[in-house]
Computed example of a mutant assay.
Amino acid sequence: MADLLSVAKLAGVSRATAARAFSSPELVRPETRHKVLEAAHRLAFRPNNVARQLRAQTTKMIGVMVPSLDNPVFAEQLQAMEVAARASGYSLIVTTSEYDASRESEIVEEMLRQRVDGLVLTIADADRSEVLAKLHREVCPYLLVYNQPEAADIPTIGVDNRAAVAEATRHLIALGHHRIGMVAGSLLQSDRARLRYEGYRQAMCDHGLTPRPLIEMPRHTQAELACLEPELSGHDGLTAVICTNDLLAISLIGELQRSGRSVPGDLSVMGFDGINLGHCLYPSLSTVEQPRVEIGRSAVQILLAMIRGETPQPLPLPHALREGESVGAPPTSRQVLVTRNPQRNTP
């Protein structure tokens, strides 16, 4: 295997000059740099970046933890982060917690062992987190994404979850809906869901309406109609629901249609996230759109500023209400909804 000395000899330069061509190429004359790089190519030599970075007390790596890669929200965030990090000479180490708060400390510990220069995290509950308590004792800079902790000294980037869902709720009320519910996965898996529920409750109370208890699904992104069924029946049945993420809303629309119900004829369904898949459905998904690409790009920029010793104070990014066909005015006369089996209705 070729080494740096072999490259220097083939290029006709000193070992120090060859090393400088890789570590500080701007300090080496272009023609000399070209000779060194050409010699390295001929000898299939690759410089040991890890060793050089460790000597400089930096790895140029950012550790990233997200709940899942199945959700396009996190995939789009990561893509934007990778582009921004690469432009600044950094790489990402990505791992998933699978919505399991008990794994978060283990994941962060492993990334700290790899000497990452900083961390970008989406955790289960920013206000009751063992991970954040641990990071307070570390020197490694970290930034939360999508979380919205009560503590003002914890840096975070995302939208105002309460305000976003409050706006979505007011939109439904303006269409004439008074019996509005909210559907989420387990609150233990997402503090974002809790904050969004608070925004829904506040908007309902502000309009003199009674907020309903949160309807929790066993899984974060997959609806089970049996959990919602009791809230659909009777004269007081729901006419609209807000789901705490788009995948949950899409799953719910499918379950409703398979049961013979119409969306939005029988039930209006609102999502949250604004993933592109929502455009492709029929009915198209009405949702609250988060600026996912801007969130990912800003996360890298803010973390790099923290690594440089700065103390940025990021502000919430703007959300947008994206109207779609899954939301409409409530039925003019509400009849008792019953589960209809398409097979039974077939002559």
Rank of each mutant, 00 (worst) to 15 (best):
S102F: 09
T210V: 14
F74L: 04
R52A: 15
V336E: 13
G181K: 04
E167I: 00
H34Q: 15
Q301D: 15
L10R: 15
S190T: 09
H136P: 00
A226E: 14
R137G: 04
Y200T: 03
R103Y: 02
V269P: 09
Y146L: 15
A87F: 00
L285D: 01
G208K: 08
T339A: 14
T96L: 04
T210D: 11
L228V: 08
S88M: 00
Q202R: 10
Y282S: 14
G199V: 02
E82V: 00
I107V: 12
G237V: 04
G118K: 04
A299W: 06
T122A: 11
S97I: 06
R103I: 02
A16H: 11
L238F: 01
I157T: 10
A56H: 09
L172T: 05
Q290L: 05
D153C: 04
K60Y: 15
A168P: 03
L303D: 05
L277K: 12
M81T: 06
M61E: 11
A223C: 08
D246W: 03
G296I: 06
A166W: 01
M217F: 06
N276W: 01
E224T: 07
M65N: 02
L78Q: 06
S24M: 12
S284R: 03
S286T: 15
D117H: 03
H319D: 08
E109A: 12
E38R: 13
E231Y: 15
V116M: 06
L303W: 02
T311R: 11
H319V: 00
L121S: 08
H178R: 14
P312Y: 08
S233I: 13
L317I: 07
Q114E: 08
Q290H: 05
R258G: 05
R86G: 13
V50I: 13
I123L: 14
V293L: 11
L92E: 08
S88T: 06
G237L: 06
P312G: 09
L232K: 02
V241I: 10
M65E: 01
E109H: 10
E98Q: 14
P25Y: 08
D153P: 03
L175H: 03
Y200N: 01
L92Q: 09
C140R: 09
A223Q: 10
Q343W: 11
E167L: 12
N245L: 02
Q79A: 12
C243D: 05
G118Y: 05
D153T: 12
D266E: 05
K35F: 02
V327G: 08
H235K: 12
L92A: 07
K35P: 07
E110K: 11
P230D: 11
R194W: 11
